[in-house]
């Protein structure tokens, strides 16, 4: 198959309209803009969901809620020692008193944080996947040595959020597919319109012995150039928006929101979208024109 741009210069004049005439390049630009945004959203959400699960999805949080500070401290030390001895425990991190005070300060205000509240001792426990499977046994062993321990599985409260992120990710993918379909439909309409406009020229070319492929090459080149222009404009616009959103995300400072960034491979995938769009538009134009020409003698 010849490349869509490999049409001799003189033959290009056979279709008279100026380049980028009509709404087609701008329709493709809008479609590409929305497709890249949807794609970036989907990829960011996937990365956020993966990061969420890998960072805290296999984590237990142990709270020692004894009101007596001495008993609480003693049970915390015993629980940490017991956890450290367990196989598959990757990290045992005691949340420091300063962090607890700061957290309470954000929740209760500065006055509340200074009150004589019985603040529980909190311990984050990161488990290997194998150890996470026997989390109930690990929890029981902690309760044996620290009776006032409450053990929360982070996945329990994380699950609805992970499900939401997963749904949003699939929604973004569906949007990309729908946008691609809409772009293809727009190309089909544009190709049919162009065929009708140039029917006289096509008939004359046919009667002079032009093959369907020769005629189709003219149209696919035109559509490819429109798609190239529209794809570039749409991608650049979407890139600018994504850079703006990225800087806002950085300002939020949330671990969850911040994890929704794009890796190099994601950026590469986004860059592939306009390239794939050009290829798709060219292919659809070629198929549409060839199918229409087959109905002519």
């Amino acid at each position: 198959m010849n490349l869509p741009f490999s049409v001799p210069a003189a033959d290009r004049r056979l279709l008279p309209e100026g380049r980028f005439a009509g709404p087609m390049p701008w329709v493709i630009a809008i479609m590409m803009f929305l497709t890249v945004l949807a794609g970036a959203g989907g990829l960011g959400l996937r990365r956020a969901a993966d990061g969420l699960v890998s960072s805290i999805g296999e984590r237990l949080t142990v709270q020692i809620v004894d009101a007596n500070p001495e008993f609480r401290e003693a049970q915390a030390r015993i629980a940490i020692a017991a956890l450290t001895r367990q196989n598959g425990v990757l990290a045992v991190t005691r949340v420091s008193d300063e962090e607890m005070q700061a957290m309470l300060g954000r929740l209760l205000g500065e006055g509340g944080a200074e009150a004589e509240l019985p603040v529980p001792a909190m311990i984050d426990v990161d488990l290997s996947p194998a150890a996470y499977q026997r989390r109930d046994a690990i929890a029981a062993s902690i309760r044996d040595v620290a009776p006032s321990a409450r053990i929360d599985d982070n996945a329990t409260w994380l699950s609805p959020l992970a499900n939401l992120l997963g749904s949003l990710k699939w929604l973004a993918l569906a949007l990309v597919v729908l946008m691609t379909w809409a772009t293809a439909a727009a190309v089909v309409l544009a190709a049919r319109g162009a065929l009708d406009t140039h029917r006289g020229t096509i008939e004359v070319m046919h009667l002079m012995g032009a093959t369907d492929v020769q005629v189709a090459r003219l149209f696919q080149r035109r559509i490819a150039l429109d798609a190239l222009f529209g794809g570039a404009v749409g991608f650049v616009a979407a890139f600018i928006v994504l850079v703006g959103i990225g800087s806002r995300v950085g300002e939020v400072g949330s671990e969850l929101v911040g994890s929704a960034g794009l890796a190099a491979i994601d950026r590469l995938l986004l860059f592939a979208l306009p390239v794939a769009g050009i290829a798709l538009a060219t292919l659809v134009a070629r198929m549409t024109v060839l199918r229409a020409l087959r109905k002519m003698l």
Binding site: P8, A10, R13, M205, M208, A210
Partner: peptide
């Protein structure tokens, strides 16, 4: 939209 030259040249270009 083609000149007289390009119209006459058309069969040759098609070939």
């Amino acid at each position: 939209h083609l000149s007289a030259f390009d119209n006459v040249a058309l069969p040759l270009r098609v070939a």
